[in-house]
């Protein structure tokens, strides 16, 4: 859709333009924002990068310069705008990426993993910018690709879950979650969890998926997420299995499915498999 690749089959239109036959019109009407360190000229300043891309989009200097100042302010980069990009932090580069995609004020934005590799604070800033400024204030149409389900939940009105190149489910976040409401999620915090426990828990009737992660290495605290058809039926067997395995249970709670649970249920695998 960004015109970098041709469709395998069929046709696609962006803002009324055919992506294969009217590639230049599509390029002029979209802004593409990629994640990561690449895509910017490191030996130019942030401001010079923006002016360079403005020219490549055919934006005249008398319009580009005030636009650049406005955008730099929007992402709070105006104080560092005259520094070479090579001196920017990862989060600053990402904010520059975002406004680079906005330099020609396109109605549609393609955001490809916009918070990839950012520290939590920077990711929050970027997400707020996308939601508050781009979506709410400027009314941009945004196509966002992400592996972070929490991000999709927070930012997207419509979600398509893609697995092995195929859309396997789509809808609003609420619709997708409702689709897996029949799945109960049990969250257990425990210490002294033996490795064999996972396979033992998987043998309990109704259990569909078990996921563990260490949440406090010093205290040896592990979080276990169990997806089951019925929490009520699974819970007695689960506690018995854990006690037998020698695990010391600190907390058990039933939680609502998140989009991550939706993804795991739909694809039958973890996000990063």
């Amino acid at each position: 859709m960004s015109t970098l690749l041709l469709p395998d089959e069929g046709t696609a239109y962006v803002n009324g333009f055919d992506v294969a036959k009217q590639a230049n019109e599509v390029r002029s009407s979209i802004g593409v924002v990629t994640g990561g360190e690449r895509g910017l000229y490191w030996r130019l300043t942030g401001r010079e990068n923006l002016l360079f891309f403005a020219r490549l989009y055919g934006v005249r200097e008398d319009k580009a310069k005030p636009r650049i100042e406005e955008l730099l302010k929007l992402v709070e980069l105006e104080d560092r705008a005259n520094d070479n990009v090579e001196k920017y932090s990862r989060g600053m580069k990402q904010r520059l990426h975002l406004i680079r995609g906005l330099i020609h004020d396109p109605p549609t934005l393609l955001l490809d993993e916009p918070t990839l590799g950012l520290d939590p604070n920077s990711a929050v800033v970027v997400r707020e910018f996308i939601k508050e400024k781009l979506q709410k204030e400027q009314g941009k149409t945004i196509l966002l690709t992400t592996h972070y389900m929490e991000e999709a939940d927070q930012l997207c009105d419509q979600i398509a879950v893609i697995d092995h190149g195929q859309i396997i489910s789509k809808g609003t976040p609420a619709e997708l979650k409702a689709g897996v409401q029949k799945i109960d999620v049990l969250r257990i915090n425990a210490t002294s969890v033996p490795e064999s426990l996972i396979s033992d828990v998987k043998l309990i009737g109704g259990v569909q998926e078990v996921k563990t992660s260490v949440i406090d290495p010093v205290a040896g605290l592990t979080e276990i997420l169990v997806h089951t058809r019925s929490a009520e039926e699974t819970l007695p067997h689960l506690t018995e299995t854990m006690v037998k395995a020698g695990a010391r249970v600190r907390l058990i709670e039933q939680s609502k499915p998140s989009l991550e649970d939706v993804f795991i249920t739909l694809t039958g695998r973890r996000l990063r498999d």
């Binding site: 960004s2 015109t3 970098l4 990629t34 990561g36 690449r38 895509g39 910017l40 490549l56 055919g58």
Partner: peptide, 13 residues
């Protein structure tokens, strides 16, 4: 190599 070719080719230039 600098990772800018995609950004360049995504413009109508």
């Amino acid at each position: 190599f600098n990772g800018t070719i995609e950004s360049l080719f995504l413009t109508p230039a």
